[in-house]
């Protein structure tokens, strides 16, 4: 591979944000797992001037039970998600997504922050995190702020992260009793494939009534998006077959997919409806 960039390897978080402090555009970027960034650089889709290596920044690692919230460092790898009992207990949809994520070597390196920051609508961790109402902690040398993942993306590969900021952490509220989350990745093969349509649902049941619903759709719009009208259809009701079907149809209408080498827009819209119906039904009547 040939490219022209400088590489600064940060020893700790303070050094990392200092190295990024003068970043004024996409020419300077943090390098975490590199599983997207290096591919883009090699293909000359991305020509950085300087990269800041985060692989030694221990403060960006770790999965913690932070009282009422689950909090993970931005540099947590997909494999670390899979190996965490806390994630297994609190975010089964994230585990389902991590299991279907690329291959072992990529899972061992790719990070949660990197998957969010790459901005791909097919990023597999984003739909389950969105359905969990995840929040991102963005830090720079001079600031720290919290942004809801739902507010992070501004358009295709556009987001609110400033060039001098890192996604330092991702957190979400520990699910209440009666909550169920599911993710399904539909792809053209089972192993190591780019998602054709990914749907995550997260619902809370209270005495036969759906009190909270989140439906997140991947690879069917310029960004991973919430199907809010479908969610509204579910909340406050017992979920009949008809009501779930109505929500699934609304989710399909909320999507705005394109034709590409993996599938047509029509098929993706069909898949959104099928998967939303299945996942909500399954979450509503979880196997005992």
């Amino acid at each position: 591979m040939h490219a022209n960039f400088e590489l600064d390897i940060a020893a700790d978080l303070a050094e990392a944000v200092a190295m990024l402090a003068d970043a004024d555009g996409p020419g300077v970027a943090p390098l975490a797992g590199g599983t997207n960034l290096i591919v883009d650089i090699r293909a000359k889709r991305y020509r950085p001037r300087r990269l800041v290596g985060l692989d030694r920044v221990e403060a960006l690692r770790g999965i913690a039970d932070d009282g009422g919230r689950v909090r993970i460092g931005g540099r947590t790898t997909v494999t670390e998600l899979l190996e965490s009992p806390l994630i297994a207990a609190t975010a089964p949809s994230l585990v389902q997504s991590a299991r279907a994520f690329a291959g072992q070597m990529v899972r061992n390196t790719a990070t949660v922050a990197g998957n969010i920051a790459c901005g791909s609508p097919a990023a597999d961790l984003v739909p389950p995190l969105l359905a969990l109402d995840a929040e991102l902690t963005l830090v720079s040398r001079s600031s720290s702020r919290t942004v809801a993942l739902a507010d992070f993306y501004q358009g295709y590969k556009k987001d609110v992260r400033r060039p001098d900021e890192l996604i330092a952490a991702i957190s979400w509220e520990k699910p209440a009793a009666g909550s169920h989350s599911r993710y399904y990745k539909l792809a053209r093969r089972k192993g190591d494939a780019i998602t054709v349509t990914g749907v995550a649902v997260s619902i809370v049941l209270d005495r036969g009534v759906c009190t909270r619903a989140r439906i997140a759709l991947g690879a069917v719009a310029p960004v991973v998006l919430r199907a809010r009208s479908a969610e509204a259809t579910l909340v406050g009701h017992g979920l009949t077959k008809e009501r779930i079907g109505e929500a699934a149809a609304q989710a399909a209408s909320a999507s705005s997919p394109i034709d590409d080498v993996r599938a047509s827009a029509a098929y993706r819209r069909h898949a959104v409806e099928v998967l939303t119906r299945r996942l909500v039904t399954d979450a509503w009547q979880p196997p005992i």
């Binding site: 591979m1 590489l7 390897i9 390098l31 797992g33 590199g34 599983t35 290096i38 591919v39 090699r42 293909a43 290596g53 692989d55 494999t79 690329a102 291959g103 072992q104 070597m105 990529v106 061992n108 390196t109 190591d192």
Partner: peptide, 27 residues
């Protein structure tokens, strides 16, 4: 493949398999 699709370049780094084609040698 030089883009992490095939795994032929896998090596262990600190005990975990990684694609060496996606790893910069400085790191």
């Amino acid at each position: 493949c030089e883009k992490g699709d095939c795994g032929a370049c896998a090596v262990l780094v600190d005990g975990k398999a990684v694609d060496s084609c996606l790893t910069l040698v400085w790191t």
